[in-house]
Design a protein around this nucleic acid. Structure first.
Lengths: 241, 241
DNA sequence: GCCGATTTGTCCGTATGTATC
DNA sequence: CGATACATACGGACAAATCGG
């Protein structure tokens, strides 16, 4: 899939770092050496390096070189970056994940709903609420709104499986940007009704929006997950901006 | 401060978007128009645009243009991106933040501590534990280890104020990369002892490392914050890598 | 302390490919 | 099909930081 030059280099270097060719705290070959090795321009090498720095794999210092800052001992728990999906976290612990759809309807966004979700007032939305099960324990809920006009073909059956599959697979849509807020909040009545809280009275709450390749917001989601079933890994670079 | 061309453009465009010159869902001028307007190369324009896309301000589409995807109505709560500092969240709610240092010592990293923190075994570390107060309520703890060799001059007095100030100000050090894991966990005995949990039995836990400009890991931190006093905003781009 | 070699950071101009309309 | 817009790539130039002699 990645036919671009800088992506080839990115993948190759990434593999080498993960394989241990360039261990933690060691320096990579200089940019000019890499340019010679890959027979390409320095720009392409630098773009690959920028992507690796963004992943928290390396850090470069003017005048010295590029140092590997990925410590396999520390990053072991999480493969790469980002949010650990419910299904991932469940399987990692030996549970079988399952979704149960408890609400599926078409709604028109009124003023309140528009304000909550960020969709324009009057939009037709597909409103879905699911409960996530790990084996037979209800460990999370997911309430989502999709812009029906751009996400057609949603059915309870499709949703019970995976919305993501439908978007990327069937519709050929791509989510390019997503924005999320993570907080920890007290449980509410809805949580008490649907979740096996096991005595917990607070949980992880994630609210977010997703934009497709045309820059149109197509999703608003609120997920609420019981302690122990939420995990987020993040690596941030100093604001170079 | 930002004298680089691409940073000037980045700042200017960012301001214009925030000011509403280019509203939500509108298109920016084309890259060639921006190139002409700023009298610079297309590369510099593109670099500024890349930074804005990284911030979740814009999204570009090949063949069409660059669309503004920053909705001021949605992003209002959080100014920009990242973790909302304890002090920020406290002040935003009208509380007065305060730190209390309850542990300050030099330690040598043994095998267990090295495994926990990621520092090499045998490193001399400054071990600090603080309790965060909002007005008079204990709402969080912060247990940190700093590599003494590279973070000298720490004292309880300095720490009570702000470690960050000491690093960036007094020492002139820059934190370039930081890596964090966020989870929600059950309270433990230490939490019960130091925090005013107000009945909560779960809280936000953030564990992370920070690297200085030379790529040396200088900090390990574990913060534990009561529900309502933790907030993280994040915007992610599709893995272009 | 200075100087020169090395290395990364920034910037430019140009060419070509690809998606959109 | 042609015009427009973004994506990728190349090569060259100079600045700034680091390090060793």
């Amino acid at each position: 899939m990645p036919k671009a030059v800088f992506q080839e280099i990115y993948q190759d270097l990434k593999c080498r770092i993960e394989r241990g060719d360039y261990p933690y705290q060691e320096f990579l070959p200089s940019e000019s050496e890499l340019t010679a090795y890959y027979s390409c321009s320095r720009s392409s090498v630098r773009r690959a390096l920028a992507a690796l720095a963004d992943d928290g794999y390396i850090q470069s210092q003017q005048g010295k070189g590029v140092r590997v800052i990925r410590n396999p001992l520390l990053e072991a728990p999480r493969g790469y970056d980002g949010l650990e999906t419910f299904a991932e976290i469940a399987r990692r612990r030996g549970f079988t994940p399952r979704n149960e759809v408890i609400c599926f309807e078409q709604t028109m966004a009124d003023e309140d709903l528009a304000h909550l979700t960020g969709f324009p007032e009057g939009s037709m939305l597909t409103h879905i609420m699911r409960v996530r099960f790990a084996d037979e324990r209800a460990v999370g809920t997911d309430e989502s709104y999709y812009l029906t006009a751009r996400v057609p073909g949603l059915t309870p059956e499709v949703v019970e499986r995976s919305v993501y599959e439908h978007l990327e697979g069937t519709l050929g849509m791509k989510i390019v940007t997503s924005k999320r807020t993570i907080t920890v909040e007290a449980v509410n009545d809805t949580d008490l009704e649907h979740l096996d809280l096991d005595g917990f009275n607070a949980l992880a709450v994630m609210r977010g929006n997703a934009f497709d390749n045309e820059g149109i917001m197509v999703e608003y989601t609120e997920t609420r997950q019981v302690p122990g079933f939420f995990s987020l890994y993040e690596t941030t670079l100093r604001p170079a901006h």
